[in-house]
Design a protein around this nucleic acid. Structure first.
Lengths: 201, 201, 201, 201
DNA sequence: AATGAATGAGGCTTCATTCAT
DNA sequence: GATGAATGAAGCCTCATTCAT
């Protein structure tokens, strides 16, 4: 058996700098996850798809779990970077910041679509919860600040953040064309936090 | 190991009526899922916890997958029965119906807490998606009807249902005391569907 | 004898005289062997096909092996009875006796066709050899007597019997229509034992 | 490590060239088949006898069935090679060719004695029949050609081949000492095909 | 006599991980 | 650094057999 490189044939260099190798392995893992799902994932397949020997995988990751944890960490990083910048950026209304966060999350979700979903499996027990908490905390801050500024009406930022954090994933999963979900979801978010559902008069 | 009967000490009788045995096995499975998670679930453990021999499990379920599917089906049944009744019940405002559905879902969720979450794993491929769709469809109907009645303002019932279906699980997971989440989540749901973001006058 | 009513359907009397029950179980076993082969044979299936409970099988046979041994014994009995009679019957040439034996064996074989073949498995180690030896001994006697009478030329009756005992099964297996194999095989047998390979003189 | 290396102590090296490992496993299988029979054969025992871990067996054979199929294929190869050469070899009488074939088959049989018999079991359904057919076809050709050449008198080569193919195994099984069976069986074969046992006149 | 739920040893197979080269 | 043959624990499932009813 020569190797099972099918789709996405990796840049085959006999020796690669560590970064590249690591990337290849992570990409192979992500690809497999997307193609076949979590339960079907084996280290053998990862190695084959990455174009390396099985043992090599263990040169870069201590275990299968660590490999998955690393992939998960990467994903959350991507989901947190841009939104965190938005918070710090001055001169924006809180609503604009919220819209930006929604847009970023949906973009990340759409990029990795199923991958994110598949990683929701328990790749090491509670390990998976940690980065998600970071995302939630970001939103908690956003909501609390917006509330304090009088722009939002969010009596319980924590609960609301939990609510919204899960909410937006729903529409993401049920869409094929990455249409204009973003706008629609942003609208829903605004409804949830709106200061005066009421006009005034 | 003497046997691992821990929680819910099973009625120890050598022979049990089929219903009871089936229940014992399902309960054992649910308990294990809650305690140790999906990946750690083995038929051996299920048998031990149910107080039966391994082979007995296969007398009631054709395979591990069917066992999980049965558990899942039961869960979804519980989540759909009461809400479906609400829809049919006359003399209620749509908001009351929505509140009822939220209450029912949260109750179900709280009852089974993680179990629901754990079962979200792929216990038999896409089979698990089917009943979730049923839940969503129920909500879609509710939203669409409420909208047509002028009581809600939900331009896109499908998307909104997806949004809400996922949203309410967030607060559920992050709460230890089953406090008054229900009220809070109901309020959030109302905000999302509210006919007049505008007040009254 | 009703024998093989395929699915279920044995003469369903709730209580049957022991002989009948025994017959039902043996017939069910034979039928299953014919339909699905030796490896697929389970006591459960036997019971189901015989229309009795699993435990009942063990009332009539001490073990699966004994059940198979009994079936085998029956088969050999059928193959030995008529030929043994031929030997004793006076006023026949040895060639006629040989022809009769061939005809009887082929008939038995054709009746049970695969069954015989399937039972060739090791249903209890060397247990299966015993009755076959009886068949061989019969032929040995026939050949030796015919030789002594000058009608045959069989220097080594034992070896020749072994030879012929296996030989006739070949044509049996490779025939669909129970055509006139008998005549052809009888001719081959005669060639093997013929007193004067030489014609007449 | 208990290990059950008994007969034919395998070359103990942690790493072995693939050919050697494969051989070890096949030999272990053959040995076990001879010692304990088909039903008692387990992959565990094969591994133990071959001096490898259970998993290693699956590195060389995809399943137990494939392992047995491989062993069977090897056996038939050995039984067909030399006889096939005889057919092609010029300058031989057909009787000489027939004698050669008998000798080769008996030799193969004697080498592997029971192994051949044991493999006759259904190790993979009808797959096992295929190579046996090849042996038969070889003989059919031999008989037909000899008949056409006027050296044999074989009205029905197919039936006769079936007859002889099974016949020779009889004497093989019932002999401990590999005495001079060959000569005796060759003589029997000749009787069966003899053109004119007769002179004529 | 008959039942069939229950048992549990044991079979086949997978796969994360190691380690000698 | 890389390799991949080898390992062996552990999982799922089958089925001959038992025994309380």
């Amino acid at each position: 058996m020569p190797a099972e490189r099918s789709a996405t044939a990796q840049p085959t260099g006999r020796f690669q700098p560590p970064d590249v190798r690591r990337r290849q392995i992570l990409d192979a893992t992500a690809g497999l996850l997307l193609d076949d799902g979590y339960e079907a994932l084996t280290v053998s397949k990862v190695a084959a798809r990455a174009g390396v020997a099985k043992g090599t995988v263990y040169l870069y990751f201590d275990s299968k779990q660590e490999l998955l944890a690393a992939l998960q960490a990467e994903m959350w990083d991507r989901m947190l970077q841009q939104p965190a910048a938005l918070l710090a950026q001055p001169g924006l209304t809180w609503t604009e910041r919220l819209d930006g966060l929604v847009a970023a999350w949906i973009a990340a979700e759409q990029d990795h679509h199923e991958l994110y979903h598949r990683l929701f499996h328990e790749p090491g027990g509670a390990a998976g919860e940690e980065p998600m908490t970071a995302a939630r905390d970001l939103l908690v801050t956003l909501l609390a600040e917006g509330h304090r500024a009088g722009e939002f009406d969010v009596p319980d930022p924590e609960l609301t953040a939990d609510f919204l954090t899960h909410a937006y994933t729903g529409p993401c999963h049920h869409t094929k064309t990455g249409a204009d979900i973003t706008t629609a979801v942003q609208a829903l978010f605004r409804r949830v936090v709106a200061a005066h559902p009421t006009g005034h008069a």
